[in-house]
């Protein structure tokens, strides 16, 4: 029972001292708020950028043209052989007829010229549209498919993809580095602010020691206090994330410039980010307090 009782008191003391040292608490809270807002924006931006690159990558398709002479049975065999490759995410078959109908539907000029074709003299080629799992191995995969008997040719926008790939890598790395840097800076800022506020309570700590509080039981209320500060400090950033992102999403209608660059849909996303922000706030607050108190326990 004793540990529970002491833990309960620690929680009570933590809340009490947040309010009794309100001006200092406010300093810590506003520091946490501001830095967490920056972290939140960085997180939102970087996750969205990563989402764009993922979407664009997913959109890359290998189009496999099948020789005209190949009949329906043979197509099944080719499909099975393509499917054996381990980099294949999905295969979609389009027969000559389907392609023709698609093309006819897409423009009236094509419609006029194709209307009279009869099925046997359709000059188009049946295709497989293949999505790959790992875009970096697309070249390899394409060359394997090209060698399969009955395949006429393979097309996947070789040069464009290579350019994209290298750009994506740079963007991904940059955003990750930026977010990590920001988090590190945040930790330093918050830890230092909390250290300052605890410095003014050095006396309190020495009195605690004087009356026989164990080091552990001195730390606990401070650590909980740090956690509470972190939580309060993350409130505004969380509201900004939820309402701000929602408004942003609505304003741009879920996409930037082209349908290809879609924003991440807000529903679960903003709540996950909010959770992360609260967690960062709490952990950093706890760490800061812990570090700061430790310095004053060495007497």
């Amino acid at each position: 029972m004793k540990p529970f009782r002491m833990f309960g008191r620690s929680i009570r003391d933590a809340f009490r001292s947040v309010f009794r040292n309100f001006s200092l608490s406010l300093a810590s809270i506003s520091c946490i708020t501001i830095t967490l807002i920056i972290v939140a924006i960085a997180l939102l931006a970087s996750l969205n950028v990563n989402n764009f690159t993922k979407l664009i990558k997913e959109d890359v398709t290998i189009v496999v043209f099948i020789d005209r002479e190949v009949d329906e049975n043979k197509i099944g065999v080719i499909r099975a052989r393509i499917d054996q490759g381990d980099n294949i995410a999905s295969i979609e078959y389009k027969s000559k007829k389907e392609i023709r109908e698609e093309m006819q539907a897409s423009s009236s000029i094509l419609e006029a010229s194709m209307r009279d074709w009869d099925e046997d003299e359709n000059p188009l080629m049946a295709t497989f549209q293949i999505k790959v799992k790992d875009i970096e191995k697309i070249e390899e995969t394409a060359s394997v498919i090209e060698k399969i008997e009955g395949v006429h040719s393979v097309n996947y926008g070789k040069t464009m993809i290579n350019k994209f790939l290298s750009a994506f890598k740079v963007i991904e790395k940059c955003t990750i580095v930026a977010v990590i840097l920001l988090i590190v800076v945040t930790i330093f800022l918050i830890v230092n602010t909390i250290k300052l506020t605890i410095f003014s309570r050095k006396r309190e700590i020495s009195i605690m020691r004087l009356v026989g509080a164990g080091n552990f039981s001195i730390k606990i209320p401070f650590v909980i206090e740090g956690m509470v500060l972190g939580m309060i400090g993350s409130l505004i950033p969380v509201l900004i994330v939820i309402y701000g992102y929602y408004a942003f999403y609505q304003h741009f209608d879920g996409q930037l410039y082209s349908p290809l660059i879609r924003l991440i849909t807000p529903e679960p996303f903003i709540y996950i980010i909010s959770g992360i922000i609260i967690l960062i706030g709490m952990i950093v607050g706890m760490l800061g307090s812990y570090q700061a108190v430790r310095r004053y326990l060495k007497v």
Binding site: R209, L210, V211, G212, A213, G214, N215, L297, K298, V299
Partner: peptide, 14 residues
């Protein structure tokens, strides 16, 4: 030891 100081302090009044 520093971390055991509380044991002493609980026996004392200062």
């Amino acid at each position: 030891r520093n971390s055991k100081v509380y044991k002493l302090r609980r026996k004392l009044g200062i």
